[in-house]
Design a protein around this nucleic acid. Structure first.
Lengths: 230, 230
DNA sequence: ATTTTGGTAATACGGTGTATCGCAACACTA
DNA sequence: TAGTGTTGCGATACACCGTATTACCAAAAT
């Protein structure tokens, strides 16, 4: 054993912090989905023993919360219009795009209350343009309804996207073809409207469909704002 | 070894089938949440080795799909009104109530396309009263928008319910009290609207909140049906 | 009577989240 | 300087998971 083959003092890999942990977890999730995120793999990616993480995180669920909050930083726009409708629309589209970049977000959206700093900032930015426009309860209803639509629409879109990717077919084609019993059930005649939709429905692209439903909800909010609460 | 202590032929525990498996899984999930459902525990509850299940189910995810579809049998009402608005409202409330009975449903809602027979029946029943009222695309948008709201609203409600149960406090009180940094962040003054809401907002009960948002969405649908698509 | 078969149970594997424990490097006291 | 806490980290351990593989044994077929 000479100086030459004596191992280097193991160059500390930059001291850990939550940011680096969350970034590693997000990278893993982006590559392989949420179920590819294990504390061991996150730790490995940081050249660290798994138990190190517990110095910064107390549970895996907390890590997920941090991931969600981190993505909310991408969602918050730099500059926001003063028009509440535009603010809501922008928030919706930015959330959708974040979910397309980080599909695992769909699995987490709405799953737990989001109280991280970035999520709070997004909420604040969403609420701000309503100041003075209506009483608080109406505003809350508006924002909650929009958020509910957002969560549901994004989940559905990602779910369909995954199904298509898994089968290599568009959903409609898949229903027509290999949907195990679906076609058989449609053939029974017990589902006439469904059959009609599958048969004659046009395949609207996801973004348009999202935007359409979004506009409907925004119209509903506008109507309620115009005529304050019941 | 006499006749007396010779073990009885192990009285076959009624031959397995999917229904029994799904029922056992649902029971476990009702008691301890989705994460209490493991193939091993389901099997144990049926006095069977874990691998037996694979004769009826090919993966745990498939079991979840079956559970979701089974709950849809509870959701489908016996008799449905002919009025589309009432049909949508009833479906929404029945889904919500199913989710309150089976909280794990919130974790699965919208997570994957639902193509089981019961789910299809629910969809058919939802679509039926629109027959002839509008073109297919509008009808699809209506139903999808409603479903998205439904998914999101239920997820949020269950998420809050769990948070309250976990802390023993109402969400608002919790935000006020132990919300780790929440109060500190509100105190910074960077979130004036949020502060106002937390401070002055009234605590509407969950069902009312759900119904309100639902009515908004229904109003939106009604408006679009009246004035066919753009 | 013997062989085949088909369904079941047992075992095995590679993973998971997290509790516990022992050690080694440092700070401080005598 | 020698000794002695102290503290933060790694290794180990535990209980459990989903599922592939193997070993078996009773019934059917030859």
């Amino acid at each position: 054993m000479t100086v030459w083959d004596r191992p280097e003092p193991p160059t500390r890999p930059a001291p850990l912090d939550r940011e680096r942990i969350v970034a590693a977890a997000i990278a893993l999730a982006d590559e392989g989905g949420l179920e590819a995120v294990s504390l061991r793999k996150v730790a490995a990616r940081l050249d660290v023993g798994p138990m190190r993480l517990y110095g910064y995180i107390s549970t895996k669920e907390e890590l997920f919360d941090l991931m969600v909050d981190e993505v909310h930083a991408e969602i918050l726009p730099e500059e926001l219009p003063g028009d509440w409708r535009e603010v809501l629309r922008v928030r919706a589209h930015r959330t959708r795009q974040a979910a397309l970049r980080h599909e695992w977000l769909a699995d987490l959206l709405g799953g737990r209350p989001t109280l991280g700093p970035n999520a709070l900032a997004v909420t604040e930015a969403t609420l701000a343009p309503f100041d003075g426009l209506a009483d608080l309860d109406t505003v809350m209803h508006a924002v909650e309804t929009l958020s509910a639509y957002l969560t549901g629409a994004i989940r559905r879109e990602i779910a369909h996207l995954r199904a298509e990717r898994a089968t290599g077919l568009s959903e409609r084609d898949w229903q027509r073809a290999s949907g195990p019993h679906v076609m058989r059930m449609l053939a029974t005649g017990r589902f006439p409207m469904l059959a009609k939709v599958v048969h004659d429905g046009t395949d609207v692209d996801a973004e348009t469909s999202f935007a359409t439903g979004l506009d409907w909800v925004l119209d509903a909010v506008a109507a309620k704002l115009a005529r304050p609460p019941a």
